[in-house]
């Protein structure tokens, strides 16, 4: 016969801890199991939110997530240096995105230059290695390239606009398990 849940809970949550407002949080190095619970829980939560958003808003889901990403990008990039040269701007971007979305420049083997000027726009292919969005999609079984990926597109475009002052667009060329190919176009 197991004890009643209420009794067990009341015993478990009894504590003599002295709680001062200025002492919080009690520890600065949470164990990996706890971090993982929070991380995976967040990924799942995000995933279900996006699934439901897609069901209700349809194509509008992409617009919502893009806008969210763009706001984030503008906010984060506000304190970084302003650069007008594309390569310098990419370096600033790599500082901003580092750890969450690491990327590297890429070019097809038959071209000489990474940065291409065409019809007044500048474009460069970027290969994204680490990506929080890809990890979230894979955690909940969503296909890559959906609304969640638009948050990254918005994030990069917003950050690049703050740094260079130029309007931009990030197109998804191919999504993969280990890297995704995107094309950054600056007007």
């Amino acid at each position: 016969m197991s004890e009643s849940f209420i009794n067990e809970a009341k015993q478990k949550f009894t504590t003599d801890l002295v709680f001062r407002a200025e002492d919080v949080p009690m520890r600065c190095d949470p164990p990996a199991e706890e971090l993982e619970q929070t991380l995976h829980g967040l990924m799942q939560l995000n995933g279900y939110i996006i699934k439901s958003l897609e069901e209700i808003a349809g194509r509008g889901a992409n617009a919502v997530t893009y806008r969210a990403g763009k706001k984030f990008g503008h906010e984060v990039a506000k304190y970084f240096e302003k650069k007008s040269d594309v390569e310098d701007a990419l370096r600033e971007l790599s500082y901003i995105l580092h750890g969450q979305y690491t990327f590297e420049p890429w070019k097809p083997s038959d071209r000489d230059e990474y940065i291409v000027e065409e019809n007044g726009s500048t474009f460069i292919y970027l290969v994204f290695h680490d990506c929080i969005v890809r990890q979230s999609c894979r955690r909940i079984g969503q296909e890559q390239g959906g609304p969640l990926c638009q948050t990254l597109c918005g994030y990069v475009v917003g950050a690049v606009e703050e740094i260079t002052g130029r309007r931009g667009k990030l197109e998804i060329i191919h999504t993969g398990p280990n890297a995704c190919l995107k094309k950054l176009i600056l007007k």
């Binding site: 290969v127 290695h129 191919h174 280990n178």
Partner: peptide
């Protein structure tokens, strides 16, 4: 035949 074009997405692995 064209490994120089590979961008390391590893979709082929999958």
């Amino acid at each position: 035949v064209h490994p120089e074009n590979c961008m390391g997405c590893l979709s082929c692995h999958e």
